[in-house]
Computed example of a mutant assay.
Amino acid sequence: MIRGLVFAVTLLILLSIVPSSTPFPNLLSLSERHLTIFVTVLKWFLALFVIWKVNSVLSRWADNGWIWKDDKSAWSWRNEVAVVTGGSKGIGAMVVKRLISYGIRAAVLDVEPLSEELQSAGANLVTFYECDITSRVAVHKAGEAIRSDYGSPSILINNAGIGNANSILDVSPERLSTIFNVNLISHWYTVQEFLPDMIAKKKGHIMSTASMAAFVGLAGMVDYSCTKVGLVALHEGLKQELKHRYKCPQIKTTIVYPTWTRTRLIEAIEKGIQSVRAPIMDPGDVAEAMVKQIIDGKSGQIILGPSIAASIRALPAWLQEFIRDYMAHVVTVKATTAVA
């Protein structure tokens, strides 16, 4: 991209300063009229590139809470503690493995014990705390234990989630309540538990695993999509409160949007995903992007899928509906599966 830009600028300068009577323009085998059109197109290309670049810089600046330059010296990875919900299996386990590769101590909140692989990989850097994250009392109890064992966590990764494969009419009240409690309400409990210490130290990073389902509601997984849309609003509001209520724009916030990922969440619907030729990510790739964001000290959104997904709502209504219709038969079974 940079080489192409340098070439385009150089070419434009040459075409602008070299008189048309010289042999140079003939090297392009263009008539004077076509040469004028070519130069005009080249100018528009450069203008659009500059606009795109400025937009990218402003977006990164906004994502960073209008802080132009961070003090990365505030982070010492071997002294940091990360809380990871749903960290025993799947994406969460991969996140834990990458965190400890940097020397970060990981406190895993889960209802399932650590896998043997994670136990052997973690050595003294991973500690399991059995915790029902849908209970504010249980989250507080786990928080007290973590602070007693390690001190105050500076990183919170809300990763735990479940998915229902049910229609609106078929989903039971119990399943509906559970999916909202696990996928959305629990984020309030963990943030309420661990954010105060981050505010006191003016340092922290809160990350949540959402989904591409936040951008489009699909038949058979409406409740799941609703919980992920809710996370978008939660992170937008959290970021605003950190800046304007608690005066702590230094605290990072990240929301992650993986596409279909090979975890227990998609086992029941994998054939449907394959029927629309949608890509399926490896949990390790998702985890790598998540931990890289933390190590780089960045806030913002991580879209792990088609970049156009975030702009679906800006498309014409007929095109939005075409996309939803195309995906309508991905989720046709009835199931409830957990993803860690």
Rank of each mutant, 00 (worst) to 15 (best):
L5H: 01
V9Y: 03
I13T: 08
S16C: 14
P25Q: 08
S29L: 11
L30N: 00
S31H: 00
V39E: 10
V41T: 02
N55H: 05
S56M: 02
V57H: 04
S59G: 04
A62W: 09
D63L: 01
D70W: 01
K72A: 12
V83C: 11
V84R: 15
S88G: 12
G92K: 07
A93N: 04
V95I: 15
K97D: 11
K97W: 10
R98H: 13
R98L: 15
L99C: 12
I100D: 13
G103V: 14
V111D: 15
E112C: 12
E116F: 13
E116A: 15
L118N: 11
S120I: 06
T134Y: 10
H140A: 15
A145N: 07
R147C: 08
R147T: 11
S148L: 05
S148G: 09
D149I: 05
Y150G: 01
G151L: 10
G161T: 04
G161K: 03
I162T: 04
N164R: 03
L169V: 15
S172T: 09
P173G: 00
T178Y: 11
F180R: 08
N181F: 00
T190P: 12
D197C: 00
K201A: 14
M207T: 04
S208G: 13
A210S: 14
V216D: 07
L218Q: 13
G220I: 07
G220Y: 15
M221I: 09
D223A: 03
Y224S: 03
V229Q: 07
A233S: 10
K239W: 02
R245T: 09
T259C: 12
T263F: 04
T263I: 02
R264C: 08
S275G: 12
V276A: 03
A278T: 06
D285L: 13
M290S: 00
V291C: 05
K292A: 12
I295Y: 00
K298E: 07
L304I: 09
S307Y: 05
I312G: 00
A314W: 15
A317M: 11
W318H: 05
L319C: 08
Q320W: 14
F322T: 05
R324D: 07
V331F: 13
A335P: 05
